[in-house]
Simulated scan of single mutants.
Amino acid sequence: MIEKIAEQLVNLTVKQVNELATLLKKEYGIEAPTSTKVENVLPQKEKASEKEEKSIFNIILKSSGNSKLSVVKLVKEITGKGLKESKDLVDNVPSVLKESVNKKEAEDFKNKFEEIGAEVELK
């Protein structure tokens, strides 16, 4: 019985929810709180996924620092692109250097860039 009620509540339209809220207020004196935090409304599944650690990253070059030539060479090595394409990526920051990289590899790349003075972000 409770499962059926829960299923019916979940499947209500916005109009029906408003009608229910009005009825509960008039008949039973039950009012919804005046402010609701978004995190309280998220389903449990979404809350759990937010807590899980991210394992796939995109490597984004934010700044080449003082050693632009070294950064271009490293971008060329990591991406497999030609010299001109690598230079274009370095010249047009922020730019995505590599997508869908595992955590360990992304951190290794980030460390290599930071060693030569570049600024990299993992998203």
Rank of each mutant, 00 (worst) to 15 (best):
T13M: 03
T13R: 04
V14Q: 12
V14W: 07
V14L: 15
V14D: 10
V14M: 13
K15V: 15
K15M: 14
K15G: 14
K15T: 15
K15I: 15
K15Y: 15
Q16A: 13
Q16S: 13
Q16Y: 04
Q16R: 14
V17R: 02
V17F: 09
V17A: 10
V17C: 07
V17G: 03
N18R: 12
N18A: 06
N18I: 06
N18L: 05
N18S: 10
E19F: 00
E19I: 03
L20S: 03
A21W: 00
A21T: 07
A21I: 09
A21R: 07
A21Y: 01
A21N: 06
A21P: 02
T22G: 05
T22V: 08
L23E: 15
L23M: 13
L24Q: 11
L24D: 11
L24K: 10
K25S: 02
K25W: 04
K25M: 01
K25V: 01
K26W: 07
K26S: 14
K26P: 02
K26F: 10
E27A: 09
E27Q: 15
E27S: 12
E27P: 06
E27Y: 08
Y28R: 10
Y28D: 07
Y28G: 04
G29E: 07
G29M: 08
G29N: 12
G29S: 09
I30T: 06
I30Q: 06
I30E: 02
I30P: 01
I30H: 00
E31K: 04
E31W: 05
E31A: 03
E31G: 00
E31F: 09
E31R: 03
A32G: 09
A32S: 14
P33S: 05
P33I: 00
P33T: 00
P33V: 01
P33G: 02
P33L: 03
T34L: 10
T34Q: 05
T34Y: 04
T34G: 04
T34V: 11
T34C: 05
S35C: 08
S35T: 14
S35D: 15
S35Y: 15
T36G: 10
T36F: 13
T36C: 08
K37A: 07
V38T: 12
V38L: 13
V38F: 14
E39S: 12
E39L: 07
E39R: 06
E39Y: 09
N40E: 01
N40Y: 01
N40I: 00
N40Q: 02
N40M: 01
V41T: 09
V41W: 06
V41M: 10
V41Y: 03
V41L: 11
L42P: 03
L42R: 07
L42S: 07
L42A: 10
L42Q: 11
L42H: 08
L42M: 15
P43Y: 14
